[in-house]
Write a protein that binds this DNA or RNA. Structure first.
Lengths: 231, 231
DNA sequence: ATACATATTTAGGCTTACCTAATTATAATT
DNA sequence: AATTATAATTAGGTAAGCCTAAATATGTAT
């Protein structure tokens, strides 16, 4: 069998491009709950909308997504399973990069985007074992198991909390480096305990006490993106 | 800047195909010491010779190799540095796969062939550190440092040894799974001490004592592919 | 309901990295 | 030196994934 040095895998295999499309469709669907539009996909993938239309027609023909012309796309069960496999790999690699190699949580995304495409079931299961079967990545995003199942956690944005609520910070809704770096600079880490001391009516900013020590003022944009569970 | 989901990197970047060509040219040159022929490259890369001719013209134009029509190719210094970077990454990943994840030495090549193309200088240096700056991979192949330098070891095939020589087995010249698995089954491991007890004149097979315990008969094909250093 | 803006698709092209078949070099043999 | 075998190259294609520009839907505001 001939090799293919460009990683455009043949036959029943999923190509790099396919994997990325499916992953982004999954993530966009998670956010909106609705069908995913061509333009939304084009935006996150940084690919021309016309090219996206082309491509989704191809993967629709492969039954990885269902496609209604001019209306958007949805993953089929097969497409969803592939997407979840990629997400599982991405998040496991992120755990490894942070916990074992010493990267910071705002440095791992790009590298994990490459590692997530490495093909080897045995590798990913051994990696999972090596890491101690983590349930979440360094940003608090849940890691699906080998069958694509999550341990569903009922977190909500801190912005949905009320005065006097005591919560645990378990994830971020926004993954931009600038936000992650803001949190690092502010010394706010996953697992921290937050007590809502007051909410400013005018701008909806939160005064919180962190781990019973530091008091901090968090803007609306910040509290909307901190995912917490009530304690 | 637009992304490229197919990993055909643009501009000054090296594409996957380029990296593989450069790596194989390096390895073939190491073996033969001479210019690398189109057909030899076609053979190891499992790519049609006509395609190879095409491709080497492209990377010659980029000054990664020097190419003399119908005579073969050689790496330029720049090409050599890229090849060594890929080899460094490949071997570091192999160490990780075997030492940290528990793979066997005959199971890691394919996976490392994928991992070697992940692009991140910081990743590879942290991996190197994490592994304790290993000097060789699980097959005894030396790992170049970040600048492409080797700690040159003067090993030779066991077949070049004489009766009564006491040597240490430090690498393999042949990397096929069947050979690696043969060694595993025969319980011959890197680091073992071998004493040449006798050499059969007729078929050049070796009678050796391993670690002062087991006595084994090794065929000419085997002893030619065991790399050793005199003790 | 019509007009306008925005989103989507169609049509036609391009590049990378491959292929086969045909041609031309090079090397080996008589 | 001429023949033959082998290796290398040229010529002409292909598929995957992208692009731009033009055409067509869809949704919104009047």
């Amino acid at each position: 069998m001939k090799k293919n040095l460009t990683f455009v895998k043949t036959g029943t295999m999923t190509s790099l491009a396919e994997e990325n499309y499916l992953k982004e469709i999954y993530k966009l669907h998670e956010k909106s709950g609705a069908m995913v539009s061509t333009s939304a996909l084009a935006e996150t993938l940084q690919i021309n909308a016309a090219s996206v239309t082309d491509f989704i027609k191809k993967i629709a023909a492969k039954k990885l997504i269902s496609y209604e012309k001019s209306k958007g796309v949805m993953l089929t069960e097969r497409g969803r399973q592939i997407a979840l496999t990629i997400i599982r790999k991405h998040r496991l690699w992120e755990v490894w990069l942070v916990n074992n190699l010493g990267f910071k949580w705002d440095e791992v995304h790009e590298i994990a985007e490459q590692l997530e495409h490495v093909v080897s079931d045995e590798l990913i299961e051994l990696l999972d074992k090596h890491l101690g079967h983590p349930k979440a990545d360094p940003h608090g995003d849940l890691i699906p198991d080998a069958k694509g199942r999550f341990v569903k956690m009922s977190s909500k944005p801190l912005s949905d909390c009320e005065k006097k609520d005591k919560v645990k910070f378990i994830g971020v809704a926004e993954h931009s480096n600038s936000f992650l770096q803001y949190l690092t600079r502010s010394d706010i880490k996953l697992g921290d305990e937050l007590l809502v001391e007051s909410i400013e009516e005018f701008d909806k900013s939160f005064q919180v006490k962190i781990n019973g020590k530091d008091r901090k003022l968090l803007s609306r944009d910040v509290v909307k993106n901190l995912l917490v569970v009530l304690l």
